[in-house]
Design a protein around this nucleic acid. Structure first.
Lengths: 133, 133
DNA sequence: CCCTCTTTTTACGTTAAAGTCAATACATCA
DNA sequence: TGATGTATTGACTTTAACGTAAAAAGAGGG
């Protein structure tokens, strides 16, 4: 029942290169199993890759992404470790909330620029008395 | 009525280095005026710097940020330019909305990890019969 | 079994975004 | 006016995240 993905399947699905996947492996972000020397990616590996790409879209570094993935994967035993984990979670959450606010502001500004552009366009339309086809 | 900021004031306010500000200037992202050789930043320059840093937090490259800032600053004359501007705005908006979705997902996952950690902690608490002070 | 095609490994190159260092240039304050 | 501190400029270095190229090793097909 274990379905595997080849490296090229994944590069095509996610539009990345083999170099990229091997680099992520070298950084300890994924660890595909091997059939001989060939890499075989499990669905779990595929999920990790999705997480990595999502992290990248949000502007996190590979090191930060690695930390987050390890947070998901770990089941730390003792209380000290758990407190530390909770702290890390809180910190990440703060960052994400800040990014959310940043996005809101940027979207608002885009709205303004767009409104200005539309205004300018209708000016041009009426002044030139031209008609769109 | 024109208040100026020195470079060190801004580095302290935004926790960046002078090298960074001069680099942004070399890239055409800000253009402070000069008193002799010394740089003087206007409130407008300061705003641009804020925009740059916000863009960076969202994972945009300096080139992308430059484009966005120029979108704000420009008042393009002809219709073709305006259409192009509207297209760029639409594209940016898409990116930002994707980032929003990415953030939502990541926050949900953090919630799960946190819930798991809390569960694990209460297990440890009851099993050890210890009390917090 | 040979040929072709894909994968892997190794190594060096590249780009963005600064960091670091050295040499001047100003400015000020005692 | 000389010392002291801050700014500027230019050059070289660094780091992250890959790109690119070359050589060797399998994989499958006829």
């Amino acid at each position: 029942m274990q379905r595997y993905f080849t490296i090229t399947q994944l590069t095509q699905e996610f539009d990345i290169t083999t170099r990229t996947l091997r680099f992520y492996e070298a950084q300890g972000l994924v660890a595909p199993t091997r059939r001989g020397r060939q890499r075989l990616y499990t669905p779990g590996d595929r999920t990790r890759i999705k997480l990595i790409l999502r992290g990248k879209r949000l502007g996190f570094s590979l090191n930060e992404i690695k930390e987050m993935i390890e947070m998901y994967a770990s089941a730390p035993g003792e209380t000290g470790q758990l407190r530390l984990l909770l702290d890390k979670i809180a910190a990440r959450r703060e960052e994400l909330l800040e990014k959310q606010r940043d996005i809101e502001l940027t979207l608002l500004e885009l709205d303004e620029v767009e409104a200005g552009a539309h205004a300018r366009m209708s000016e041009l339309d009426t002044s030139s008395l031209s008609e769109d086809v």
